[in-house]
Nucleic acid binder design. Structure first.
Lengths: 350, 350
DNA sequence: ACCCCTTATAGTCAAATGGATTATAATTGG
DNA sequence: CCAATTATAATCCATTTGACTATAAGGGGT
């Protein structure tokens, strides 16, 4: 396998193995890690390169988009260098240089170790730190070799706004069933079916839009996607129809989508993607684009209003095609107020 | 300031500044970041050192504990080296070597750039990757120079199980009010009061146990805590009574507590901290220890049962002091089933 | 044996929340 | 003026959730 399996849920999966009594990394751990804290300065071999990678999001015409560079499907990135004052400022610098796009909201996603790069003289370790960034397309200053592409070109099974995507039932389901059935023992087969059903909402289960990363990892594990630059055998006839990305960038995007979909439910981050003033329907359409599913209109409005996230500007928008809609703006004060909504513990009050 | 302000919410705070029209990192960004992707291999200056730091958690006698090493209050850590097969295996190696403790569940917390270390010949960049790990004390093999310390020695204001901690109202509140009032302009004063009230539940607001990191950052920003090794002026007479840690380890712990408190509400991670079989009250006490607040007993049992997280072992425990309690064990199958509980979007079904 | 204390377990009830639906208002375009 | 389209308000009902009460089952002392 040309790529390493990793991701946010790797620890979780590993843990499942542990409970099942199977050997884990922990059991087979390399014992040769020597040296005390004092020794650190003596080693030069410990030095590694650090890459910063950005998953930049904007919603254009109700389509959630990722910022890419070059002809290939590549995320903006660059090495963390001495000139950078911080990781974030390094990331901003690279993105602005490569795309001409200034970033607003930034959030760290995940740090992972790349597979060893064999340098000219010695082994070279590399680490990638990925980030999620939110902006608006208009902020782009006459872009260079970069462009906005819809998420759903890379993840066609993730868009449920117009009903269940055909690819899900026509392609993914049979192939995942096939993959599950290909396992050696019955327990693994059942476990694979279980995982696929939960992640994709098969067998009458509900679709959960937050499981984007689990779904990608499942598809990847089943060998149904192929990324550019990986040297996989070409014997496998047909993969799931979707755009691939360079290296493991598609996994980073999946991580970012999952994070963002989860986050819009408890923090007011959507407004980073909105213009200064907007109608409630525009806001709803943006959330729907991110979540990949439709939202009940009256209930959405009730939710927004009772949380007092927005305030009226006093103006109305007339290009709605029907009755003019009130324009709203985000109440920035909520960033200081926000008590974060939901608890799930039955706490004892008083 | 001897330490850099950073953390999970740094992006959020930064963003608030942006909206308030203040200059930000983005605005003052260094423009000298040069070089294309092809140049990477040519630079040696870009190499950095990578440290792995572990926040290891166990709950001993209803007290949530952190694993520390040495006499000082230090988290297990060590450099990421060539011998390590992955970041996680490197972390496991260091923790086992320094504490003799094997790790089970591991989850990445945050990656940050340390302040520059001035090496003997040239500037040296360093990066720290922090992790959250869950275990049980019993797994410890006759420990070396390490020990378990209660979280609440470092964060006495976080334990609300036995009522509001005195330090909150007697020390923190007046000092935070003083800090808020010390701001130059009225807007900043109001914003500071607002933030403090939200984070600590002042002025009749509810206590939100998930805001551990925000609270620590606020206290830090107000100059009310001092960490070991920082060269702060000694003129400030009295700080908030609490144990400090080496470097920014206390911030890492705060990040981990916040993450864990949020996570137990939607993923069944508590069971990593439980023995094989346990009573429902033991489970409840463990959750209470982590959350730092009491839970309504009947409702907690209802929650556990309706989610089918556990199954009866058939045995009962008699050392409860009253009626014997049924013993339960975790249903590991839920790890494959779990559809993750809560949505907060008013989705349109059908 | 009995009482009393402790904890376990089951059940009830009201309030709040959340999903779905219907009704009414204000525009544009023909 | 009518039809189509969108905005906005209001209502209904099932489910969830917080708070509380009642009963069961043990141990320890007298």
């Amino acid at each position: 396998m040309a790529m390493q399996l990793r991701g946010v849920d790797a620890a979780f999966r590993l843990n499942r193995l542990r409970h099942a009594g199977l050997p884990t990394t922990f059991a087979t751990m390399d014992k040769q890690a020597k040296g005390t804290r004092k020794d650190r300065a003596a080693f030069k071999a410990d030095e590694v390169k650090v890459d910063l990678i950005a998953f930049v999001v904007a919603v254009n015409d109700n389509e959630p988009c990722v910022l890419t560079i070059g002809q290939a499907d590549t995320l903006p990135s660059g090495p963390f260098a001495l000139e950078h004052r911080s990781l974030q400022s390094g990331l901003r610098g690279w993105v602005e240089q490569q795309t001409g796009h200034p970033l607003g909201y930034i959030e760290q996603l995940y740090t992972f170790a790349d597979r060893d790069r064999i340098g000219s003289e010695r082994r070279q370790r590399a680490i990638s730190i990925s980030y999620l960034a939110l902006t608006r397309k208009e902020q782009a200053a006459a872009s260079r070799k970069c462009g906005w592409r819809s998420w759903y070109e890379y993840f066609p099974w993730e868009d449920h706004r117009f009903g269940t995507p055909p690819v899900l039932l026509d392609v993914l389901r049979p192939r995942l069933i096939e993959w599950a059935g290909g396992a050696a023992d019955a327990a693994t087969r059942r476990e694979r079916r279980q995982r696929a059903a939960t992640a994709f909402g098969f067998d009458g289960r509900h679709w959960n839009e937050d499981l984007t990363l689990q779904r990608y990892e499942l598809i990847y594990e089943a060998g149904l996607v192929q990324e550019a630059g990986s040297a996989r055998d070409a014997t496998r006839p047909s993969l799931v129809p979707s755009k691939s990305m360079v290296a493991d960038h598609r996994r980073i995007v999946a991580t970012g989508i999952a994070r963002l979909r989860a986050k819009i439910k408890y923090r007011p981050v959507v407004f980073e993607l909105m213009p200064q003033s907007f109608t409630l329907l525009q806001l709803q359409r943006t959330v729907e684009a991110l979540a990949g599913r439709l939202i009940n209109k009256p209930n959405f409005r009730r939710l927004i209003e009772q949380q007092e996230l927005v305030e009226e500007t006093g103006e109305t928008s007339v290009d709605t095609g029907g009755r003019p809609a009130k324009l709203y703006r985000f109440r920035h004060a909520v960033l200081d107020e926000t008590p974060i909504v939901g608890t799930k513990l039955p706490v004892a009050r008083g």
